[in-house]
Design a protein around this nucleic acid. Structure first.
Lengths: 196, 196
DNA sequence: TAGTATTCTATCCAAGTGGATAGATAATTG
DNA sequence: CAATTATCTATCCACTTGGATAGAATACTA
């Protein structure tokens, strides 16, 4: 019916996600975005509605992927898998290449603070997802009888939410997953200490 | 000898710090910086050496202030004071007005990742300061005999470093100290659980 | 093969960027 | 009071920004 796009829709969104992830929203110009992703500046306007609209779509796609992968990767009813999730975050071989830039959502929160409602809404979803994932992982471990009765479940959940954000921030500061190793090992040791 | 500046040196640096803190480096133009701080665009060039040079000076000043206040505020040999440090972070009355924008250094890390050596160097100092502050606070508590022998001191230190970064990120997302209350209370509860 | 619909290429644009500079202004010194 | 020195005000600059648009290219359909 009509001319095809240079880059298929899925690759375009993933490429845009990677570009925003690495550079951040403000530091990434539309010309550089085109060069790195193949998304034409024309297409950016006509099919995505501009830079900000595309950015918000990448945030949604990012959170969708988190939602799909996070719980399965950290929760199998054992404390060791939850602890290992933090350790694996620091292994370049076990993370997407863009993982060295930390977390797209955390970078976006810091870029916009509370100035952009569309971003703030995604920040709320992000925090909720984190909290539910850690709470769910702990609940599975609890049901398996592997969690110390002395552990304050709710407090541990909040702690893990904060700790995971901190870990990704330290990784981004260095541009290297491995920079988070000391912190991840510390978190993992604490988590393993919650055994019954 | 010569004409005086509109704003004295100290107020200028504090004002610039606050402006960068709230808006972030990239989102703050030099004209807006002048409007909010009184630092003339002329003075920005002649006495500070440009926007980036001033920004780096504000980072240094920020870290100096952290260095002076952090340990005294969190460490007096009791677990309760350390735990309370996280809770107080969420009380608007007990924080500078700019505290609602999270932490300047964390925002800067996210803005530049590893692209700006001058910022990366400050990020290293920041992480070191956090680690030493928490390790020092725990050591004081330990010396007072108030720390459980079962606690992995090193792991707890790493956990607190990450958690404090996460707490500030959540605060920045909302532009409100109080948004961190749930997380801070969780961290505080965990910390209090480390009693001997 | 001709028509149609969509994307791409190549500009153009107004607005904003950080930085530089010339002349006016003000405060201290002699 | 006059000279000096540093800052302020007001431009000017080259460059980049996100966005808009006109014409060429391309891939289906009839």
């Amino acid at each position: 019916m009509a001319r095809l796009r240079n880059v298929d829709e899925d690759a375009a969104l993933q490429g845009a996600m990677r570009a925003f992830w690495q550079h951040g929203y403000q530091a990434l110009g539309t010309r550089q975005l085109e060069a790195e992703t193949g998304i034409t500046r024309f297409t950016l306007q006509t099919t995505y509605g501009g830079k900000m609209a595309l950015f918000v779509q990448t945030l949604d796609a990012y959170l969708d992927q988190m939602d799909a992968h996070m719980l399965p990767e950290m929760a199998d009813g054992t404390l060791d898998t939850l602890a290992g999730w933090f350790e694996r975050r620091c292994d370049p071989a076990r993370n997407p290449e863009a993982g060295r830039w930390g977390c797209l959502m955390i970078a976006s929160i810091n870029a916009f603070a509370d100035t952009e409602p569309a971003v703030s809404a995604r920040a709320v979803r992000f925090e909720t997802m984190l909290r539910e994932a850690f709470a769910g992982a702990l609940a599975q471990i609890d049901q398996a009888g592997a969690l110390s009765p002395d552990l304050n479940r709710g407090a541990a959940t909040q702690m893990l939410v904060a700790a995971s954000i901190g870990l990704n921030t330290v990784i981004r500061a260095a541009g290297d997953c491995r920079a988070g190793t000391k912190i991840a090992d510390g978190i993992a040791a604490m988590v393993r200490g919650w055994a019954s």
